[in-house]
Structures are given as structure tokens and as C-alpha cells.
Computed example of a mutant assay.
Amino acid sequence: MSEQLWTERAPEYPLECDHCHYPIPGEPEETDEGRYCSVACREAAATDSSMTDPHAYKRIATGVEPVDSLVPNGIPADSFLLLLGDEGTRRAELGTELAWRALERGEPAIVVSFANPPTATLERFYQNGWNVLPALENDRLRVIDCYTHRLDDRSEFLDRRNEWTAFVGEAAEDAIVEVRDPTDRRELTNSLYGALDDLEMTETGLVTLDSLDELESLLQDRQMHELINDIRATICKARFVPVVAAASTANEDEHPEAEYVFDGIVDLRLTDQFAPDARLKQLAVRKLIGAQILPQWVAYDYEPTRGLFAFGPNGDARQRYDLGNGSQQSNQPQ
């Protein structure tokens, strides 16, 4: 996908630098070993240093159909994305699916959980039919637990778990990183950075923050703003690891900084535009720095195992619903 993008954008640059792998816009710096775009690349290559082909990691397809349909050339891997949605738009499932698709690609994933205890966070995967036990055993999944500190009696909570929840908790024990005081920004970020180091997450994987609304209840506005900037700089920009955070539209007007703090904003909404008794879910990419996006709303729905799927922008929703009576048609292709 990304190689095609470069071909489309820079056909006038037929040569590619043998070190950074980007097109050479002028006369190349040539040696017996190769051709380079600059003296810096030529000298770096002479020291036997190697650089991963940037086309391999600087854009990713998320694997989530309605998102990828609007970003045809992929999402820049150094992006901090905000999933901003109404209640009922399944933004929580979207965050979970983005993490699962990363695991499916063989990449690691970190889920920072503010809204649920770790076992409930993992249960979100199982509710969708996605078995994360192999990822836990293979050390490809971490849960940063920013919820358990709220419990008055943790022992009582553990004692009251059912058999399945106890099993999942024991299986995930080594993959759970407990943050004793999430209001301590330093402790929170150190726990996150430690997990990134343990999973060797540079130029691979994905981080999700399940609820900025819950984070806001822990931190003051300025602290939250600084935390987001820290994460964006040290994870997205320095490591080329995308971060995805979910938030409710209820507080959108109180936080206009979302327009510039985040690299991308994905809007999710409910609409009865087509019929008053059929509330459709729609998704659009409001902005995404460094990427081509299609400026339209896409209607989508959700099924366990399948996840979120698109069924056409705007008026094409009639292919999915019988809007005469509001009933939902079969999910199977016709």
C-alpha cells in the first residue's frame, strides 16, 4: 500500500536512497556501495549502520473495515488518534478491536484501562470471540491497570470472582501492570514506558487508552494535557507506535484542545437521518495529519467475531436496514 503511495506521489524520483529508502530528489551521492540522497545517509551507510525500510512501518492498515475504508493509504504510525463518540456508538468495541487486529498481525499491544478492572478489560476481547490467552502466554499483550486502586477491599473483589474470571486473572497475572496511584502522572507514564520496553515496542504494535473521560476524573486539566503531550512525543513520535484513546462527545465542548493535541480524530455518531425509528451508527475521520482521508460518513454496524463493518456511506444504509419499518435486514451478503 505504502509503496504504491510513493509511486503515485513521486514518479519523477525514480531513484531510492540505499540508506533511508526515500526517493532521491536531486543528484545522488554515489559510492561503490550504493546511491544516497544526502551526505548524512552516505556517511551513515559507511559505518555499517542499517535502517529499516520506512515503507514497512510508517503507515498501517488497522484491519477495522469502516476505518480503513476512509483512510485508503493507511494511518501514519506516529499518530495519536482520538475516538470521539456518542454513547451507543460502540467506541469501546472499536478500541478493543484495534488492539486485537494488532495482535492478529503478530504485533504487541498495550491496553491502558481506566474504566474497568483488568479481567473485565480482557473479557471485552472474549465477548467478541477473540481469544487473547495465546497473546498473554507469548508476552505480546499488557494491561496497564489504572482501575484497581479504586477498590476499597481488593481481597473481597478477588474472592467474589467466578471461576472463569479467576482463571483469566491468573492466566494474565504476569501481563498486568498495576498502577497504585494513577493521579501520579510520573508513575503512570513510567508503567507505560516500562511495558513498551518489555515488549520491545518500537516501530510495531499499538497502545489503547480505554477512557479519557475516566482519566479526566483523576487528573486536573493541565495535568491531563501534559500527559497526552508526553505520550504523543515519547511513544508516537519517538517510537512510531500509534496510540488510540476513546472519549465521549459529552465533554467535547469543554475541551477544544482536542482539535490540535491529537493527530487524528475519528467521530462516531448516531443518526435518525433516514428514518426516525432506525438510529444508524456512522463514522467519519475528521482529521488525520499526514494521511489522505475520504471526507464522508460511513454507516457501520457490529457483530461478535467480525467486529465493526461498513455497509456504505450515507444513503447506502438502505442496503442494511428496511427503513420503512426500522427493522434490520440480515447481515449475510445478498
Rank of each mutant, 00 (worst) to 15 (best):
H225T: 06
E104S: 09
F309L: 01
G290I: 03
I60S: 14
R232I: 09
G312K: 00
L103Y: 14
L158R: 12
I75W: 15
L98D: 00
H19I: 04
L141V: 09
A40F: 07
E178R: 13
G307A: 08
I24N: 06
P76Q: 03
F80P: 06
K281N: 10
Q220F: 12
A233P: 01
E254G: 05
Q329I: 11
L141T: 07
D68T: 07
L199M: 04
G324L: 04
D253N: 04
V143K: 00
E259G: 15
H225C: 05
R35K: 08
P304H: 08
M224L: 11
E107A: 15
E178I: 08
M201L: 06
E104D: 08
N116D: 13
L199P: 03
R35H: 03
G85P: 14
D263L: 09
A247R: 03
A115Q: 01
T96W: 05
T119L: 01
Q273L: 14
P66F: 02
Y126P: 01
A10Y: 15
N325S: 11
A171R: 13
G106I: 12
L136F: 11
T52M: 15
R232L: 14
A172G: 10
T249V: 10
R222D: 12
A291V: 02
L227P: 00
P117V: 02
A171N: 05
D253H: 07
D18H: 09
T189R: 15
R306T: 08
E43M: 13
L133R: 15
E87M: 09
D253W: 01
F125G: 06
T62C: 10
D139T: 04
T47Q: 14
L133I: 15
A166F: 00
A120W: 00
S113M: 00
F157A: 06
E29W: 14
T52V: 15
L94H: 03
F309T: 00
P117C: 03
V179A: 04
F114P: 03
Q296D: 06
T89R: 07
D221C: 01
V112P: 04
R306I: 05
N314E: 13
R91N: 07
